Structure formats: structure tokens, C-alpha cells
Simulated assay, not measured.
Amino acid sequence: MLSDAPSLLSAPLPRRLPSTMGLRVVEAVARHGSCSGAADELNLTQSAVSKQLRGVEQIVGASLFARNRRGLEPTEAGHAFIGPAREVLVALASAVGGVAGFRQEQPMLRLHVLPILGDRWLVPRFSRFAEEHPEIDVQFTNFVAHGTAEAADATFRFGEGDWPGQQADYLFGRDVALVAAPDLLARLGPIGDVGDIARFPVLDHPPTPLRWGEFAEANTVADLVPQRVIRFGFYALVIRAAIAGQGLALVPRALVVEELSGGRLVNPAGLGFRSRHGYWLTRPADRPPSPALVLLRDWLVAEAVGMQEAR
């Protein structure tokens, strides 16, 4: 019957045709001999199967099944209908498979992200990129310094921008601010210059390249001796401790924009420094970036420039 399909293209189709689900219901009921069996196979309720079956019978104008002791048996009209219906379903499945090679797979990007960067900068704004490019599937994983289970298309790193075998695009982070909670200054007094820092505890994350010595050098102070140094194993805790009023911290300004604008943190006397280190998006230099990665890189750079960091 399907071999005659090309000759039918010139003739209009009937105005009412059964739905694909209706055809599947009829075919499944014929094989199982019951609505319950068809319902289980198609993940439908029995009432939904019965409704679909009635709808097809209304369109064809005849009963397709009759009930006997063994269940539902095709009527003479049913036998005439079920065979062509099964052929139609097989042809549809074949047509879907035939165009599989023409589908464009959704581009996917796998990114390794530093937790502090993801939490405080990337994730809060990433919905804008997702809305602009819903066709790109972006997967985030934790950054691993020495090998990963899955290769990344791009990696966010913190440093001076020079990693062997990597092409790096600078984002932000060189604008480093001295920050403190207002209640800390209320307890220990205001900060008018670098010398006042000696009255305060400072918060430190030893693995990060943001050194208090670099701050002292940038502010022409020979020796910076704080009241005490409180060290944390995670940089996120440095920021949390600063907000809680436990000490002074050196933080890339872009990571605490909301806290500074909302008054939870302040930048005493505008103190800070221009660091050699910052956040970068890196990718393997030995292969060209995919179109999806180019879109993401351009968006990230534009977002970073839009912060108007002192670059």
C-alpha cells in the first residue's frame, strides 16, 4: 500500500485523520487483545486508551474491535484498518531514522570553574548567556589542578596569564581592594592610611597569590605588621570572615561588588593595589576554539569589561 504513496501526493488527504497516538493505540490493542495491555505498553491509563480507540473509530466510521471470551478481537473493519495502520507507523519510524544524519547535535561546552569564581561572579550572571544561546549546553565541573576525569573545553584560572600550552583571555581580578566590615571599624577605629592596619587582624589564604607583602609594596610601606594573621584553607572563607567582621581582607573588587554597594563591606580610605594576578579563561592552544566556545569567550570578556574594572 505504501508503494502507492507517491501517486497519492497529487490528491488531497481527507480532512480528518487519526492521530499518531490513535494509530499506536489501535496497533497495541490488536497485539495485546486488551486495553489494559496497550495501556501498560504505551504508559497510558486504560481510560485514555479507550478514548483514543473511540476517537479512531469515530473517524473511520466503524467498530475496530469486538469483545469475546479471550478479550478484544479485530472486527472485519479492524482487520482492514490495522495492517495499513501498522505500515504507517513503521514508515514514520523509518522516516525519523532517515533524517537522523541531518540533525545538528546541540553543541556542548565543558568548563572547569574555580568555586569562588563560579559562586561569586559566573553563576549569578550566567542565566543571561543561557537565555541568549539556549542551543549551547554548558556543563560546569570543579577545577582540578593536576588532571581531570574529563577533558575541559576551557578552564578558569587565577594567575598572571602564562600557562604552558594554554591560550588565555583576561577577565578581571587585578583590581584588588582592602575590605572590612563596618562594625570592625566601629570597634577598632577608622583606617586613614596603611599604617592603621597594624591595629587590625588580617585574613589570609596562603595558596592565593594575593599577598599582603604585595599590598605593602604597592602602598610604599616597608614593613606591614598586623595585629595577627588568621589563615583559611578556602578563599571563600576569607570573604565570609571579612563580612562577619573578623578582620581585614584583600579581595578582587569584582567578587564583592554587591557587598560593597550594599554596605556589608567597605573599602577603607580607598586602599588597595593593582595586582599582577587575575582571573582568566584558558583553552588548549593546540586546537582552534569551537564556535560555541568563541561565543562564550566573547560574552565573558564583554561581561568583564562591562564591570569597568581599573584595567
Rank of each mutant, 00 (worst) to 15 (best):
A11V: 15
P6R: 08
S290A: 14
Q104H: 12
L300R: 02
E132N: 04
A38Y: 03
E27L: 02
L64H: 07
G101R: 02
L250A: 12
V123K: 11
G159Q: 00
D137C: 05
V225N: 13
A302R: 13
E309V: 08
A254H: 10
R103A: 15
G37S: 12
P206E: 07
R228P: 01
L171E: 09
A5E: 12
L122Q: 07
E214S: 15
V179C: 10
V123I: 15
A5F: 12
I82P: 05
A151D: 14
N68F: 04
L178H: 06
A180E: 04
A151L: 11
V225T: 15
S47D: 14
G213Y: 08
L8A: 15
P182L: 05
V25Q: 06
L114D: 07
G247F: 09
R264F: 08
T45P: 03
A145L: 12
A145G: 07
Y235K: 01
P268T: 05
F65D: 01
R31V: 10
T75F: 08
L293A: 13
G161M: 05
D169E: 13
V25T: 08
R211G: 10
L171F: 04
V99P: 00
P209L: 00
F126I: 10
V25S: 05
Q308G: 04
S50W: 03
A85D: 13
L248M: 06
R86D: 08
A11N: 07
V49D: 13
A39T: 12
L8E: 12
F65V: 02
D119W: 08
G263S: 04
T155M: 09
Q166H: 02
A242N: 11
E131A: 14
N267F: 00
D223E: 15
G161C: 06
G159Y: 00
L184M: 03
E27T: 11
N142G: 02
D119L: 12
G161R: 03
A152E: 09
Q139S: 11
T75P: 07
E57I: 05
G278S: 01
V257H: 03
L178D: 09
G159M: 01
R240Y: 10
R211L: 13
I239R: 08
D196N: 06
A5Q: 10
L111T: 13
A85T: 10
A93V: 04
H277T: 06
T141R: 10
H277V: 05
D40V: 13
Q166V: 06
R86E: 14
L2I: 11
T45A: 11
G165Y: 01
W163T: 07
G83F: 11
L296R: 00
L117K: 02
D162M: 03
E259S: 11
V90Q: 15
P115D: 15
E150A: 13
R211T: 13
M1W: 06
L300C: 10
Q104M: 11
A216E: 14
K51E: 12
V251D: 08
A198W: 01
N267H: 01
T220F: 15
V229R: 15
I116W: 07
C35M: 12
P182W: 02
Q139L: 08
L17G: 09
A91W: 09
L17P: 05
G159N: 00
A302D: 14
A48M: 01
R69G: 08
A38D: 01
Y235L: 07
L122S: 02
Q246V: 06
L111P: 14
G306H: 10
Q246S: 09
A180C: 02
L296T: 02
V144L: 09
S261L: 11
S7N: 09
